[in-house]
Design a protein around this nucleic acid. Structure first.
Lengths: 398, 398
DNA sequence: CTGTTAGCGCTTTCAC
DNA sequence: GTGAAAGCGCTAACAG
């Protein structure tokens, strides 16, 4: 048998109950209320606290302060409190101060759900990335958050794990949370964009980066993959390589196509014949690299250089090639793309193309806010192209 | 002068206005409404679209379907629709089907803000991590999301960038979003825990992992740092090393203390004297490593092995030591802690202690849900300790 | 099984 | 400058 007190609406009532367990009870479990109180739906969650003395203790309550509380305390109306809290200038200076002081004192926290419900504003943007195992996407996110927090916006992050269904689910979550803008880099599986087109239909701004959907008429942030690839391959050529293989990414990613084009352009410029045999289609699944590399070396005329679609691939290639006892860069030179953390650490260190990763995030976020503020037309398919840099290391020159 | 049509509530009305610019206008700017429409607060945002023919075009509207729409359409009450949508069994099968079908057809999406407002449930948990540049925290997050999504919960992710103020701000965001539980690994700067104690006060479950606050009486998930460190050092000893240095982490992180204790215990077991001179305090700032290593080698009697507090530190140490022309592992053997991605790739590959990273996330999430469901007492400071594994590579044996 | 009703906490007219 | 009142979209108690 436990004695306890409970605050209903305004007044403390006393109850006496047999409660088998010391825990939080739901209103349903406390059938006593049905007999005692008109409004069974009490506005406070509560704990039953055992007391020796019937009158001795107040209960632990969890009650978020609301504008109503403040209004009541100050004998003013909810509206006035709301005005103060939303920065409406039409408020008496004294009242304003009093409200602010009391809000502080009562640790008032605005209920964002209530606010969102009425204003239809959420001050939230979303970002969906395919993974964050490599340092690329995390850095982008940091860039996005920098800009977003300056704008007073929160960022919800979701990662799709390179899985299309997860991406769709994430998009739903973003929708449900009514993000005001969405920054996306799609998975390598994504060919259907309905889940993103839904945002366009609702006029929620979208910005793509890195893995973009070319068919959607929205702003995009990319690096100059073509130029990066061109310079990577050019570097291989000028260091004396004649037969340059390419591990090419999946065709549905425009990033793969642009890098492939850069590769082809460099060959063309230096009048090196293109050999389809050493342009290897590759699905970005790292465990395939071993077979593909072995395949390359089984050719009658194996390559003397390799341009890999990205760093993880190049790094895996280096491991494989080293284990085959082939010398890098003498027998085969290798170039990657993105300048991952690891690239400078492995042996030999990897020549690669670095991209301004954080800047990518910042640029994407900038675009989103310009779209949110209607500073640019949502249908203008602006493409911001950031520049890359060739980092020469020991996988191409001793 | 622009002609346009606008849908108010149910019917299309026609208006004619001079709008200086082609953009979205707020209701305030369109003073015409005051004269024309009873409810100036239209439930639709709208665009003014220029049309040649007055009647030619419908406007782009954004209107989220609500249960009211469904109810009206089906000539039933909101409550019934709500019952269907919340899975209340007391609904006629036919009605249920009709509602579901219409919801589908109208692309109905529940407004979570409205629901949260009334139910005081958000189906959301939060996770705050210090960074996600290394693969550790991202993997933990994947583990957390696995469990959370199975429980039908969303996860809000925040990263504090190893910055105390950001962590506090993140905690505020979590509070504002009314997460039902919070998983935290604090920054290396965090010494004040008020922002987290606030959650305890509101009875929102907290679980710590990795970087824990020992003083807070809440569940924690850690790996057996003591044992891991012990085995790392033991391995150095049995491979013949006699003078083992330790780059120790900051004292305020219990993780540092536990690893240090493991180190000391191993020395004790093998009767190797402890020399404070080679136990180097280090603040986890990677750029300090160089100086500290040089300092070690300037000693009269430099160490022949190094146990670094974590992998990034060990990896940096390897770079520095290699550049000094000192041989690893002959002159100095090195062990790290965590088995980061890079560890297996660098030259020489790093001997290290691996932790079940994803499992850590899953365990933490499990605990959170047990707490949310009151299956365990929130004040029971359960500590789940997961086991580690010694991964022997070439930085300790040739 | 269903409709009526009240209300979550907030913003925003409108009238004074 | 301020208060009253309506309503955002939803759930839940209650009465049939």
């Amino acid at each position: 048998m436990i004695f306890f007190q409970l605050k209903l609406r305004k007044t403390w009532e006393r109850f006496q109950l047999h409660l088998p367990q010391f825990k939080t009870y739901s209103i349903k479990e406390l059938s006593i209320f049905k007999n005692t109180v008109k409004f069974a739906k009490v506005e406070l969650a509560f704990f039953a606290v055992p007391t020796d003395n019937f009158y001795s203790k107040k209960l632990t309550m969890r009650h978020q302060t609301t504008i109503k509380d403040i209004a009541k305390e100050l004998h003013i109306s909810k509206s006035t409190v709301s005005r103060v809290l939303t920065g409406n200038p039409n408020v008496n200076e004294e009242t304003r101060k009093a409200v602010l002081a009391l809000a502080q004192k009562l640790d008032y926290q605005k209920n964002i759900f209530a606010r969102n419900l009425v204003t239809h504003k959420t001050n939230t943007i979303g970002i969906i990335v395919p993974e964050f195992m490599s340092s690329y996407f995390p850095k982008v996110i940091i860039g996005v958050q920098n800009i977003a927090s300056k704008a007073g916006y929160n960022t919800i992050i979701a990662q799709s794990n390179e899985n299309y269904e997860t991406e769709v689910a994430n998009a739903k979550v973003m929708m449900a949370n009514q993000v005001e803008g969405l920054i996306v880099s799609v998975t390598k599986e994504t060919n259907n964009f309905d889940h993103l087109i839904a945002f366009q239909r609702k006029e929620i701004p979208i910005v793509f980066f890195n893995r973009i959907c070319e068919d959607m008429h929205v702003p995009k942030v990319v690096v100059d993959d073509y130029d990066g690839a061109f310079r990577a391959v050019e570097h291989l050529i000028v260091t004396g390589k004649k037969r340059i293989a390419h591990l090419a990414g999946p065709d549905n990613l425009s990033i793969s196509r642009r890098r492939l084009n850069g590769y082809l352009a460099a060959l063309r410029k230096y009048k090196i014949p293109v050999d389809e045999e050493i342009i290897i289609p590759y699905d970005l699944k790292i465990d395939k690299v071993k077979t593909l590399i072995q395949q390359l070396f089984n050719l009658k005329c194996p390559p003397d250089a390799l341009f890999a679609i990205n760093d993880p691939t190049a790094i895996e290639a280096i491991q494989v090639i080293k284990s085959m006892g082939i010398k890098i860069p003498e027998d085969i030179a290798i170039v990657g793309f993105s300048n991952d953390e690891v690239s400078g650490l492995i042996e030999p260190s990897l020549t690669t193309i670095s991209q301004p990763v954080q800047k990518i995030g910042e640029t994407a976020a900038d675009l989103i806010f310009k779209l949110i503020n209607k500073e640019i037309n949502p249908n203008s398919a602006i493409i911001k192209t950031l520049t890359t840099e060739l980092i020469i290391r020991h996988s191409t020159v001793r």
